[in-house]
Structure formats: structure tokens, C-alpha cells
């Protein structure tokens, strides 16, 4: 899309705000609507927009498919790792109270934060990876 000046300029202005909104949705998920799933999809949508306007190759320079292939399982590992950590601290699997021995509510907040981070990583990288494979297939 070399000729579409308006699309290029507007999307360049929009994409940072999209990513910022995704972060808001992610970290405000405890207090308002949102969470890892929604934020992950919004992050993926921002990069898909970039790929639609500036091309797949330019997008893969920013985030390479190899990086995404690492990020997909990493998210699941973070999630399961929180569970294993609470095991080791003497609680049940995913019992966030065990994360902070002084104040259980801090443990809950930290646990939810970590788990949602894992979900964000897996969802966003999977969606983007699926888009890459479809778009890179060519005709």
C-alpha cells in the first residue's frame, strides 16, 4: 500500500495508542472490564493493522516468527509455573495466598497479575503467529 498516504499516517498515529490501550485493559482488569485475553487480542490486532498497511516483511522485522514461537509456550509455562511455585510454598496448585506470606491479599494480586501476563503472552503471540502463517502462505 505505497500510495495510501492517509492510511499510513493515521495508522502510524493510532498504533501506539492501541498498544497503550491494550496495556490499560491488561493492568486495569482487576477493577474494570478487561484482562489477559482481551489485551492479548488487542495487541495482536495492532500488529495486524501494521502488517496490513506496511506489509508482512516490515512487521516480521519488528517481531520475528521465531520470537513468537518462543513466546507461545512461554506464556503457558508462566501460568503453570505460578501453580508449581505455590505448590513449593506449601499450598495447593494455583493457591495465590501462598505467594506472599505476610499478606494473602497481596499474594492474590500478584498471582492474578502473573497469570494474566502469561495469558497475554500466549494469546497475543498465538493470534499473531496464526496471522503470519496465513498471510505468509501466498497464492
Amino acid at each position: 500500500m505505497r500510495g495510501h498516504l492517509i492510511l499510513r499516517v493515521v495508522s502510524k498515529i493510532l498504533i501506539p495508542f492501541l498498544l497503550l490501550f491494550a496495556l490499560y485493559v491488561q493492568f486495569h482488569g482487576d477493577f474494570g472490564p478487561g484482562g489477559g485475553f482481551q489485551a492479548g487480542v488487542i495487541v495482536a490486532a495492532a500488529f495486524v493493522l501494521y502488517a496490513l498497511i506496511f506489509g508482512l516483511r516490515a512487521t516480521q522485522k519488528i517481531i520475528s516468527p521465531a520470537l513468537l514461537e518462543v513466546a507461545v509456550p512461554l506464556g503457558v509455562l508462566i501460568y503453570a509455573g505460578v501453580g508449581v511455585y505455590t505448590w513449593l510454598m506449601g499450598g495447593n496448585f494455583l493457591d495465590y495466598n501462598m505467594i506472599d506470606s505476610h499478606d494473602p491479599s497481596h499474594g492474590q494480586h500478584l498471582g492474578v497479575l502473573l497469570v494474566e501476563a502469561g495469558v497475554l503472552l500466549t494469546v497475543s503471540s498465538t493470534m499473531l503467529l496464526i496471522f503470519y502463517t496465513f498471510a505468509g502462505r501466498g497464492r
Partner: peptide
């Protein structure tokens, strides 16, 4: 249902890959 939506898009992607 939140869970179902995200699983839904995952299965849709897999189905589309099979169609391709």
C-alpha cells in the same frame, strides 16, 4: 463464555488452516 469465545477463535483458525 469468556473462555468459550477465545477457544472458538482458536478452533476457527485450525479449521481455516485445514480448508487452505
Amino acid at each position: 463464555i469468556l473462555t468459550a469465545i477465545v477457544v472458538g477463535v482458536a478452533t476457527l483458525a485450525l479449521g481455516l488452516a485445514l480448508v487452505v
